[in-house]
């Protein structure tokens, strides 16, 4: 049985607690611009990404060539995904508080692994959905349902590449330099994202 040694109640509790924390954690790009505690930081991020997706999606109608439109769309998706992974998700990927908090509790390593994977899937799923929703609808309108379904599939594949590239990047940087360097690099990306993302929305 693939789920042996996994306590589903614990998986649910860990994953839902982590998602609650995501909703409350300020995105890294907010730190200076907002004074108030966000009531739902996650929802705000999703709305910003959806709005940007709207403009990128309009490109589908403006670019006459199908291949070119899809190349632009996937480049944009991959770019956004890696940016999100590096700026916001580095908290989750490089989190060490779990070892202090969850490891002393009677939780098997498999339960923790399943809970973490579930959390990452839900977290990324929400953001990817926000980014791709408008382009997906526009592509379906312009090129038909088969293209829409295929686009959904290639979105998932692009996500996989994005995660892979991010891990490789972290792996390389951690191998050849120090942890402090990783934080510096994340800092550069955060500055870039602040200018790129938040400036137009203010």
């Amino acid at each position: 049985m693939p789920l042996s040694g996994v306590n589903l109640e614990q998986v649910h509790m860990i994953a839902s607690t982590k998602l609650t924390m995501d909703r409350r954690r300020k995105p890294a790009t907010w730190k200076r611009s907002q004074q108030k505690e966000p009531s739902n930081a996650m929802l705000y991020s999703m709305m910003v990404y959806a709005l940007m997706g709207l403009f990128v999606g309009l490109m589908i109608f403006l670019v006459p060539d199908f291949m070119l439109a899809m190349i632009i769309l996937h480049t944009y998706l991959l770019f956004m995904l890696i940016m999100i992974l590096i700026t916001d998700f580095s908290n989750v990927l490089l989190d060490t508080s779990d070892s202090q908090i969850i490891l002393p509790k009677p939780v098997t390593s498999r339960t923790l692994l399943v809970a973490r994977t579930l959390h990452i899937i839900v977290y990324l799923g929400q953001l990817i959905l926000a980014i791709i929703i408008c382009p997906l609808i526009f592509s379906t309108i312009r090129y038909g349902i088969p293209v829409g379904v295929t686009l959904l599939l290639t979105t998932i594949l692009t996500t996989a590449i994005g995660i892979f590239v991010t891990y490789i990047l972290y792996g390389l940087v951690l191998r050849y330099t120090s942890e402090q360097k990783v934080k510096d690099i994340i800092g550069y990306f955060q500055v870039f994202m602040t200018v790129f993302l938040r400036w137009p929305t203010r």
Binding site: E9, Q10, M13, I14, T17, T20, M21, R24, R25, S97, Q100, I101, I102, P104, K105, P106, V107
Partner: peptide, 23 residues
């Protein structure tokens, strides 16, 4: 544990519920 290792964006009620469930 030392050094107040907990998830501090949660409220105590939520945190205790979380650890309670894990036990």
């Amino acid at each position: 544990p030392e050094l107040a290792a907990l998830y501090d964006v949660l409220t105590p009620v939520e945190y205790l519920k979380f650890t309670g469930k894990l036990y």
